[in-house]
Design a protein around this nucleic acid. Structure first.
Lengths: 111, 111
DNA sequence: CTTCAGGTACGATGCAAGTCGTACTTGAAG
DNA sequence: CTTCAAGTACGACTTGCATCGTACCTGAAG
């Protein structure tokens, strides 16, 4: 039952290039935007994002997000948990997660 | 000679995906980091960035930056001026330019 | 045990993107 | 005018990446 946490980079080692590359993809960015919107930072099943792609491709995308240091993946064997590394991201790149909420032009941006 | 300003997206139309894709490349990110560091936002020649790539490739990269809405390109015919669209970027994605200053990780961080 | 759903590993494929070579255009300087 | 440097246009090449098919692994429920 106790899942093991898959490895990712340390907080100080987060690379901005890897982060931008990870967020350049629409599907990965939608996942992170959804995670950033949930302030409780609860663990989510990686099946709860309703991505219109096959599960092999989802595996690929979650791996990219993990290797960029944006999420933690907890492996339970036949299922997987996803958690946003909010503290580490805010420590290394403060304001990045807020940026993801500005997707819609009608948001907080004053005209 | 009065150069003409090449077209780019409006400030409200800046797309976060295009911005992340533009900043995913190391060369383009170095250009924008350098521009963001100069608070005077003076116009620069596109030859002043000392990029280790051919001029054709530089043309390509500056075009991507312009089409993402991050820079203005002023065409003088046989030379070109580059200017950061700081106000538009800050209006649409506040904090993004500050983020680029956090490039340097804290020391020896393998992987 | 068997079954089954969630997930991974590996390989193949198709497409987008970075790079450069050649040729052309532009404007300034002689 | 000619020359020259800066930049662009077009095409070709190569790499990277998103995607999926097939096969395999894992743990829970019958």
């Amino acid at each position: 039952m106790a899942g093991r946490n898959l490895v990712g980079p340390e907080a100080d080692a987060l690379d901005l290039g890897a982060v931008f590359r990870a967020l350049a993809d629409e599907h990965r960015r939608s996942v992170l935007t959804e995670l950033a919107a949930d302030r409780s930072d609860s663990e989510r099943g990686c099946n709860s994002f309703d991505l219109p792609i096959s599960k092999q491709t989802q595996t690929h995308h979650f791996r990219v997000l993990r290797e960029a240091g944006l999420i933690d993946e907890i492996d339970y064997g036949n299922r997987k948990g996803i958690r946003l590394r909010r503290a580490d991201i805010e420590k290394r790149f403060p304001g990045l997660l807020t940026l993801l909420g500005a997707e819609s032009p009608g948001g907080t941006a004053p005209r």
